[in-house]
């Protein structure tokens, strides 16, 4: 039967077992796809410990229910504003900050005047403090990965982020390739950047049968720029490593994916659009939640189609 390799997104996470349980449950809940009952094996590529000292206590953290977004004190300093960065990194960050339409490094409590808020953001019913904090986490995690920054999550333990996370992903995909049946990668948020990077740019990463991205920031130019060499707009589809579909599910009001949600035109194969961009409306204010993506009808419909199963 099939095998699924999951990879999580930005921010700290609960322990690997708990996180995988949360994801599988989100998939199975409400008459969804019950991997265990269907005999489908799965593995979570876990990288939160590369950037964070210890697993978060609140289940799901940045991916959990709306209530978990009532953020208290930051668990770690995720502020890149005062970090000493090289000139190219500063330039890159400035570009990405510009996309966010507000100053992500500002005072957490500051809300911009209404006339400064673009129509895009006006529609997002999230408190500014939450949005800004999320974007800080996003900027930091994506920066550390793409620039292979050293991270010391615990005393005496230092990782070059990209090298370490790439190694974990590629090894998990190698294990998945040894299983029977189709092998699918399901990636969320920052996990889509990591999985794409490996599938497109790491030669030893084995091929998979299908690729599903949810809540992905892969549409952003700044991220695409850092996926070169390898990525080009006309030949960005990792056709050597994705034998079947690449389905990209987004919610317009997801603050991460919503910046540039449809990606088919950015990841073509020989100049032809190949990625299936699918819009899904996640419930509630916090639309970036992995659980909400996994629980949505469009995502589940495509997963069931790829797995050739019927759920309850």
């Amino acid at each position: 039967m099939a095998h699924i390799t999951f990879i999580h997104g930005i921010g700290n996470k609960p322990s690997i077992d708990e996180l995988q349980r949360v994801w599988e449950r989100a998939l199975a809940d409400a008459d969804g796809v019950d991997l265990g009952a269907e005999g489908i094996t799965a593995e979570m590529v876990y990288w939160a410990d590369v950037m964070y000292e210890s697993p978060s206590v609140a289940a799901g953290s940045h991916e959990s229910a709306d209530t978990a977004m009532e953020l208290g004190e930051p668990e770690v300093d995720v502020d890149l504003a005062e970090a000493a960065l090289a000139a190219d990194e500063e330039a890159w960050l400035a570009g990405l900050r510009g996309k966010l339409n507000f100053d992500a490094d500002g005072d957490d409590e500051y809300a911009p005047p209404m006339e400064d808020i673009g129509a895009e953001f006006e529609r997002i019913p999230l408190p500014w403090a939450i949005k800004r904090r999320l974007m800080k986490v996003f900027l930091r995690d994506v920066h550390h990965y793409l620039f292979n920054t050293d991270s010391t999550p615990r005393p005496g333990e230092t990782y070059p982020c990209q090298d370490e996370i790439r190694r974990r992903f590629v090894e998990a995909v190698q294990r998945g390739a040894e299983q029977d049946g189709p092998h699918i990668v399901i990636a969320h948020s920052m996990g889509t950047v990591i999985s794409y990077d490996c599938l497109k740019r790491v030669p030893e990463c084995p091929a998979v049968d299908a690729y599903m991205t949810i809540g992905s920031p892969l549409g952003l130019d700044e991220i695409q720029d850092k996926l070169q060499p390898g990525w080009t707009r006309d030949d960005g589809f990792p056709h050597d490593k994705v034998r079947g579909d690449w389905v990209n599910i987004y919610d317009h009001l997801d603050p991460v994916a919503g910046l540039d949600p449809a990606i088919a035109n950015d990841y073509r194969k020989g100049g032809v659009n190949m990625v299936r961009d699918v819009q899904q409306t996640n419930p509630g204010a916090w639309r970036h939640d992995a659980g909400k993506y996994l629980g949505g009808p469009q995502f589940r419909g495509h997963l069931a189609r790829i797995l050739e199963i019927e759920s309850v």
């Binding site: 039967m1 991997l35 265990g36 009952a37 269907e38 005999g39 489908i40 050739e308 199963i309």
Partner: peptide
């Protein structure tokens, strides 16, 4: 009929 047997991971009902 099920397509496959559930996972034998001790958690399947």
């Amino acid at each position: 009929l099920a397509k496959a047997l559930p996972r034998a991971d001790g958690e399947q009902r």
